[in-house]
Design a binder for these strands. Structure first.
Lengths: 193, 193
DNA sequence: GTCTATACAATGATAGAC
DNA sequence: GTCTATCATTGTATAGAC
């Protein structure tokens, strides 16, 4: 692989998490992160468009994954099955070491609005992608919107629950639990009319 | 009102829209916006935390409005009525001149991911506020989440439709149409099971 | 209570060398 | 792919003017 230490992005991620956790996001300069990873500021910004993006690398793959999941679903799949195919593909796209990264990321997001803003934007990109894929299959854009919201909610809350666990459970199981719970909540909402 | 031209924020808003539209967001410096509004860069940043916030001033009032709407709803209101109370309050919080501002804002958002990110964050803040208010009334956080998503969807799409019109229709009418359409889409989703 | 002047640290872009 | 160097711009901080 040549002259340099491999996995510059991974090293920058670990450096950023460590320094943000220790000193806070604002007090940690990009130059310091780069130096901690054995690189320079210039190189950091060649790999990432901005400082926040260090923490969210790989999320763009999730947009592709959720669409691929829906597209690959059987032709006769019901709406709820399409959603589940999408979020299952999302779960499969996870490297398992995200179990550890996620636990460290959480307090950083809680402490830093700037990072929450980026996280929200990523979530919204996933939602829009799922919505588009569902609309293609269902023909009804409003049904697609509703289902996309549920699917992404189930995914994020399933992810949060899974992160709190010890890692012995599968992410998809947590997400399936959430999907079922939302299905039930939605049904109750209609039955009470 | 005293020694200075009034409505510094409004002047900065108009200056920003005009210059962003003409030269693009990136090519327009904060100093240029300030000068165009008859102010200095220092003053601009006294009014707004960052450059993007110029365009989204007032959105924080929407967070308070949506909560107030739900809180003020009758004690025996059904879930759907709580949602409608929240988004109706959102609509009432609008100054009508937003009809014009919105039309100019739209192409800017389309052209500038940075601005879309901020817009997404504001939408998310409204959603979370509505979700919290609904959870307080309903007791069920998952129902609250589902309903908050529908309500905010209806509001944003109603707003988009209203903006395309000539201004003779009321915003709330557009939003009500969307609420009804989502209600129907949701019902179809369940009946097809 | 709002504005301005000045100085400053940090982000992120750019150009050219290895 | 990385580095040095330089640069415009953002956003902050301080001090003071009206």
């Amino acid at each position: 692989m040549g002259r340099w230490e491999p996995d510059a992005r991974g090293r920058l991620l670990r450096a950023a998490i460590e320094l943000f956790t220790e000193h806070g996001y604002d007090a940690t300069t990009a130059a310091r992160i780069a130096a901690h990873a054995g690189l320079t500021k210039t190189t950091l910004f060649r790999h990432f468009a901005d400082k926040r993006e260090i923490l969210f690398q790989g999320q763009d793959a999730l947009v592709a994954a959720v669409v691929a999941g829906v597209v690959a679903a059987p032709a006769d799949a019901a709406p709820a099955e399409l959603v589940r195919a999408g979020v299952a593909s999302l779960c499969a796209a996870h490297a398992d070491d995200l179990h550890d990264v996620g636990r460290l990321l959480d307090p950083l997001l809680a402490a830093t609005p700037e990072l929450r803003e980026r996280a929200t934007f990523k979530r919204s990109a996933i939602t829009e992608a799922l919505e588009g894929a569902l609309a293609d299959r269902l023909g009804d854009p409003r049904q697609a919107g509703l289902l996309a919201d549920v699917g992404v909610r189930a995914y994020y809350e399933g992810y949060a629950a899974w992160m709190l666990g010890d890692g012995s459970n599968a992410l998809l199981d947590s997400v399936d639990d959430e999907l079922a719970a939302y299905e039930s909540a939605s049904r109750r909402l209609h039955d009470d009319d």
